[in-house]
Design a protein around this nucleic acid. Structure first.
Length: 485
DNA sequence: CGAGTTTGACCTGCGC
DNA sequence: GCGCAGGTCAAACTCG
């Protein structure tokens, strides 16, 4: 949140003085800039032999002016901050009156305690304190809520013994004595998978985590072997992934994630984890509402799900994130990836297909039409965010990575529009969050943003508008171990 | 020598 | 109950 407020303060400063906007999204842009100029003055003083008295006077005046601007910015920042907390307070007050039925929880990288419905409130409080710890360590992107996310449940320490190995849960079903209530629902939730389709020539997609291959199978209907990987970052990490090339298009790699990391995850893996977790939450919320199918098109953002009645396949809910680009927009820029494709999505069970392709947004020069398109998109997204909690979760995860990118882009002054877009989206998320979520969740939510953006913000990535940063990760050097294959 | 990969055997769930 | 297919195990193997 602080990042956002600083951005807003920064925008305000732009109107006052253009000189001060060089640092963009950095936490203390104006101060940094001023500090640099103060330094400049000191240098001028020390090298008095080469600098004239007039220059010294000019620099002093400039310093005075900058100091005043800094004060003004701090003033604006504080006023905006107080306004924000006021809004959050109002939102929580509204929520106390009417309890939100569907709340999205996204706790990544670390586990958070989950309990029965009775303990929901306690759980939320606990996760707040844990969230603080997580944020201190800078390893967690947290989106809090009561909605039980699959990955969160799997990573729950209290359930660790029983759900550590999803496959073993399947192999040795509970005797029915313990946790009988809700076991069925939980098992389905635990088995929720997120399948990611990417166009990749490498054996596996780089996602920031360390994986160990433990098996390989040739599945029916696809000559390409399916490889099974375990996360090796922590010895008892329950996360597994399956990697298989698409039979229709060998260049497409289908990576299916299952479970959630019960350990701090690398920064480069945070975005993938958040994206898959958010997608899983969307899937699960969709399935929980017994919706047979979902199809949403939001100005080119296609969010669709469908039920595939393949009785032969295991009944695991799977959400598919098609990061290869949709058939209808094969030449378009993809939010998640820049690789086009024409491949259909193969799914299992109740599967959800998220296509983040946009036919209009490109990483080319930004036209005014595109700007208006983004404004329109923002409006539509705002409506979608406020009306659909699961979609809100998904967007939240996406924005968190987007903010990280845009903050990095400010350094060279490029992609200002993309940043404004992200701010608009963020603002939409804020509005919906402040209205629908408690202040508790809102705070941890934005702490997640803060930690995420502050960490990613230091990097300098491409100038394109990306909905996720893990595509940047995929372009980085390939995982050493996987590269050996 | 330790970590990771390969690969055949085994287990489990599901449909017939 | 049988067969099929997905998923996992673990010994053997490879590599740095």
């Amino acid at each position: 949140m602080e990042v956002l407020l600083m951005n807003m303060a920064d925008d305000h400063a732009v109107k006052q003085e253009e000189n001060i906007t060089q640092e963009g999204c950095s936490l203390e842009p104006s101060k940094t800039d001023i500090g640099r100029k103060v330094h400049k003055t000191v240098d001028l003083k020390s090298s008095s032999s080469s600098s004239s008295h007039d220059e010294l006077e000019t620099a002093k005046e400039e310093n005075e002016r900058l100091k005043m601007m800094l004060e003004q910015i701090q003033k604006n920042y504080k006023s905006l901050q107080s306004r924000f907390f006021e809004i959050i307070k109002q939102g929580s007050a509204i929520e106390e009156g009417s309890e939100e039925p569907e709340l999205v929880s996204l706790s990544l990288g670390r586990s958070s305690p989950t309990g029965s419905k009775k303990d929901d409130k306690k759980t939320t409080i606990c996760s707040k304190t844990e969230e603080d710890d997580h944020n201190k360590s800078g390893l967690t992107l947290g989106l809090d809520s009561k909605f039980q996310l699959s990955t969160e449940i799997v990573s729950n320490p209290s359930h660790e013994n029983s759900s550590e190995e999803p496959s073993k849960v399947q192999k040795r079903p509970s005797s029915g004595v313990d946790h009988e209530e809700g076991v069925e629902q939980k098992s389905q939730v635990k088995r929720a998978r997120v399948s990611v389709r990417t166009r990749c020539d490498a054996p596996t997609m780089y996602d920031g985590c360390q994986w160990r291959k433990y098996g390989q199978k040739i599945s029916k209907g696809n000559p390409c072997p399916r490889a099974y990987y375990r996360c090796t970052v922590a010895p008892d990490c329950p996360v597994r992934k399956q990697v298989q090339r698409s039979f229709e298009d060998m260049s497409i790699l289908v990576t299916t994630y299952e479970g959630s990391h019960n350990h701090p995850i690398p920064v480069s893996a945070t975005t993938m984890a958040s994206t898959t977790a958010a997608a899983a939450s969307m899937l699960l919320s969709g399935s929980s509402t017994s919706q047979p199918s979902l199809s949403t098109e939001i100005n080119g953002l296609n969010f669709s799900s469908s039920l595939h009645d393949n009785s032969r396949l295991p009944s695991y809910p799977t959400i598919t994130l098609d990061l290869t680009g949709s058939p209808s927009s094969s030449s378009s820029f993809n939010y998640f990836n820049r690789f086009p494709t024409n491949c259909p999505v193969t799914t299992r069970f109740p599967s959800t297909n998220l296509n983040f392709s946009s036919p209009l947004v490109s990483n080319e020069s930004f036209t005014q039409e595109n700007y208006f398109y983004q404004q329109s998109l923002t409006d539509t997204l705002t409506k979608a965010i406020t009306s659909d909690p699961s979609f809100r979760s998904l967007i939240s995860a996406a924005i968190s990575s987007l903010v990280g990118h845009s903050s990095a882009k400010h350094g060279d002054g490029t992609d200002q529009k993309g940043d404004s877009f992200s701010q608009n989206l963020m603002q939409a998320a804020i509005n919906s969050q402040s209205l629908n979520d408690s202040s508790l969740r809102g705070s941890s939510y934005f702490k997640g943003f803060e930690s995420s953006s502050s960490r990613i913000g230091s990097s300098n990535q491409s100038s394109s508008l990306s909905f996720s940063s893990f595509n940047a990760a995929s372009t980085l050097a390939f995982d050493n171990k996987q590269g050996k294959n």
